[in-house]
């Protein structure tokens, strides 16, 4: 097993709070949501496991009570990036298509999907997911848009669409956010302060 301090990127003399901060940063970085539909989701999951184990090892050795998110179940499991089809279609091929996608067998998934008799919202969503995994983002976006238009209430489709619209961004260190984001936040803060000054916070 790797040195847990090295995994978290902290020195052996780091305080408990420093270790916790480093751990939280890494959890944020490798969170399954950042790698939804991503062909590297399996590597991110491994990293997450490694970070959780390192944190648990350090807290155990220091006799601390706090455990990793894994022990509480928050970041364990596969719901964030593994597909499990709950609907049904006439030939049951969608479940098989999702299985192929999870196994990164995109050509097989695409071939099977093309044989499906009906083109409903799920069909377009899966088509978009295959394109997204290939890095074909224009095609993925168009398919996701069609899926959302056909089934507007589906959150899975909406999240997928957000991932290619730039509204949902994977992990980016705060230092690397664009300055226009800072400007927007500053504007919000200014308006909030102004509102309070004008008696809006009563």
């Amino acid at each position: 097993m790797k040195d847990p301090y090295e995994v978290l990127g902290v020195s052996r003399t780091a305080s408990d709070s420093e270790i916790k901060t480093a751990y939280r940063e890494l959890v944020k970085k490798y969170h399954p949501d950042n790698y939804a539909n991503n062909p590297l989701a399996d590597l991110a999951s491994e990293k997450m496991k490694e970070v959780n184990e390192a944190y648990d090892a350090i807290t155990r050795s220091r006799g601390s009570q706090s455990g990793s998110y894994q022990s509480s179940g928050s970041y364990q499991g596969s719901s964030g990036y593994q597909y499990s089809y709950r609907g049904g279609n006439s030939n049951g091929s969608y479940a098989q298509v999702r299985a192929y996608i999870n196994a990164n067998q995109l050509d097989a998934a695409d071939s099977l999907l093309n044989t499906a008799p009906n083109r409903d919202g799920e069909w377009y969503f899966l088509k978009g997911t295959i394109a997204y995994r290939r890095g074909w983002l224009d095609e993925a976006r168009q398919h996701y848009q069609t899926a959302c238009a056909m089934v507007p209430s589906n959150y899975e489709y909406q999240n997928a669409l957000r991932s290619v619209q730039g509204g949902y961004t994977p992990y980016r260190q705060t230092n690397y956010q664009r300055s226009d984001m800072d400007d927007a936040c500053n504007l919000c803060n200014t308006l909030l302060c102004l509102n309070c000054l004008c008696g809006g916070c009563r």
Binding site: L40, L43, G166, T169, P170
Partner: peptide, 13 residues
């Protein structure tokens, strides 16, 4: 931007 995000997410690994 999506391409930059995906490149960045891969770089983090």
């Amino acid at each position: 931007d999506s391409s930059v995000n995906l490149a960045g997410a891969a770089l983090s690994l």
